[in-house]
Design a protein around this nucleic acid. Sequence first.
DNA 1: CTGAAAGCGCTAACAT
DNA 2: ATGTTAGCGCTTTCAG
Lengths: 349, 349
Amino acid sequence: MTRSPADHGRPTPRSAKPRPLTLRDVSEASGVSEMTVSRVLRNRGDVSEGTRARVLEAARRLGYVPNRIAGALASQRVNLIAVIIPSLSNLVFPEVLGGISSELEGTGLTPVVGVTNYSPAREEQVLYEMLSWRPSGVILAGLEHTPAARAMLLSAGIPVVEIMDVDGTGVDSVVGISHRRAGRQMAQAIVAAGYRRIGFLGTKMPEDHRSRKRLEGFAEGLAEAGLQLADREFYSGGSALKKGREMTEAIMARSPDLDFLYYSNDMIGAGGLLWCLEAGIDVPGRLGLAGFNGVDLLEGLPRRLATMDACRAEIGRRAARIVGGHETGPKVVELTPVLQPGDTIRPSA
Amino acid sequence: MTRSPADHGRPTPRSAKPRPLTLRDVSEASGVSEMTVSRVLRNRGDVSEGTRARVLEAARRLGYVPNRIAGALASQRVNLIAVIIPSLSNLVFPEVLGGISSELEGTGLTPVVGVTNYSPAREEQVLYEMLSWRPSGVILAGLEHTPAARAMLLSAGIPVVEIMDVDGTGVDSVVGISHRRAGRQMAQAIVAAGYRRIGFLGTKMPEDHRSRKRLEGFAEGLAEAGLQLADREFYSGGSALKKGREMTEAIMARSPDLDFLYYSNDMIGAGGLLWCLEAGIDVPGRLGLAGFNGVDLLEGLPRRLATMDACRAEIGRRAARIVGGHETGPKVVELTPVLQPGDTIRPSA
DNA sequence: CTGAAAGCGCTAACAT
DNA sequence: ATGTTAGCGCTTTCAG
């Protein structure tokens, strides 16, 4: 690429942009046909040690990086798994990703991540983008999607695994937990421990269906015992730990007779716990607390917050196994979260 | 695709795998040539309103999703930016990603993320994978790479932006802060506040060069005042908050006369802070504390840990701007982290 | 404003 | 064990 006179005023070009190398270059440099070079580079078919060595040497020397775009087009095969999640700052999703990656390791499949920020429209858009690269599978969070997104998933002709949640109807395979059941189970444990005036603190995100389902299940669990939520408080945005403090202070100021607070996630629960301890509130005697997720962070708190493990890494692993084509089992895999009472629920009466 | 007799024994196929639709299908359905359909779908060139409408209608009705693999091969253009980072569970990197995404929004470029787990070999491998998709730019963390990785970056013929760290020599553009300077600055602030017996607590990760550089700068800063580190403690893996507690307890048991603890990140610093408060230690009178990063989490703690903002989102935004081809400025952009004294350094004497 | 032809860089399928 | 041929589905280029 020669520089035109117009180039004069411009800053130095980022780099001389040489035409990227092709198989042909390696072929010429090694004196082996393109086809055989291709075979060597992909470890496919029988190639004699001699030619293999010559080809690899030439490829290395030239710094050849194969063009997968061409390869994928020719072979009609793409080693990519689209993974679509609501957020990366939630800590939960990186853990799921970890599970997916570890399981995909060595299968030749590579996860590619897209983030929706809990917006269904954005999810649709991200899905469209990713499908346009013709991945060999899709893993996405939740069962709620726009009609167009569902349609795309149905007609994509590839394995689809919806994760995190089993309360609803999936497109293809589903791996997750029942958040409704988790909420109910927590309610039962709380009631069994003798708490009666119970408040809920959570996010104000209409699109966080899992949090919503937990709350619904929780309310059902209370209803079974003839109880109902005594008060509730919602937030959005900001430092979750700080919000947890503020909300806890607010709800306790408004309803001082509450004897239990159920948080929609561990982070705000941790904030609430810190506030209670500072305020000199007897936890779990005077006031019980519980969160959800079972995040690592909890281990470092002054007291262990009661929580429920969401099986994050395991969900990722199972989903990866299914999308990779192994695992011929049922279409719906329901994992069972375990209640971790910690130190913030008093022992059952 | 008809089912062969061999299909009998297999579980129901995941889905009837229809040949994905092509431009030709849309062309036939709309009675418009492939070429014009292509133009409509890409908003390129002039197309009459009538044909445009007919094409869009047909595409929508069929559920056509373009094949970017073919498109990219034909146009020699890929709208992808490779982003390579060490970890997703660090909280720091999702924030950088946020900056990158927000800046790329609307430019037609899409970030694609690869994770190295702080392994140079893995980084090389991920880079190779990503370059094989011929992205139009690369953003990657740090200045330290394997020789092969450097070579690939140099010959890729695309913009390369190395982020987070400016202490060293980059391949192309660099956006970050000087961790060495950050460490030194913190040391100076601590010394100015009158602390003299200073300990360091950090990760045991040989490949975390930024943490290492901070420590080096910190030691230099102390040396300028005729001081040196009185003790140090390292960890790896596990819940950072908990590790912070444990390490703090350990180092204070071993060196009870320490009057300041410098942590390599806020998370372990927060753990240390919680431990100190519980242990009834006067912070910052008897013992001062400081971390690094300026994470959101700190806002919810009982006391605000002293820290230094690492300019994470800004780094992401600047890097994205450069890799996108805007910003013709200098090759190295050094951002300036700001010391946030919080409540854990006593006022300077 | 619309269409026809050529080919992007690679691999499947078939020779040899 | 190695080479040849014919596309993959799209976009570029040039012609109407």
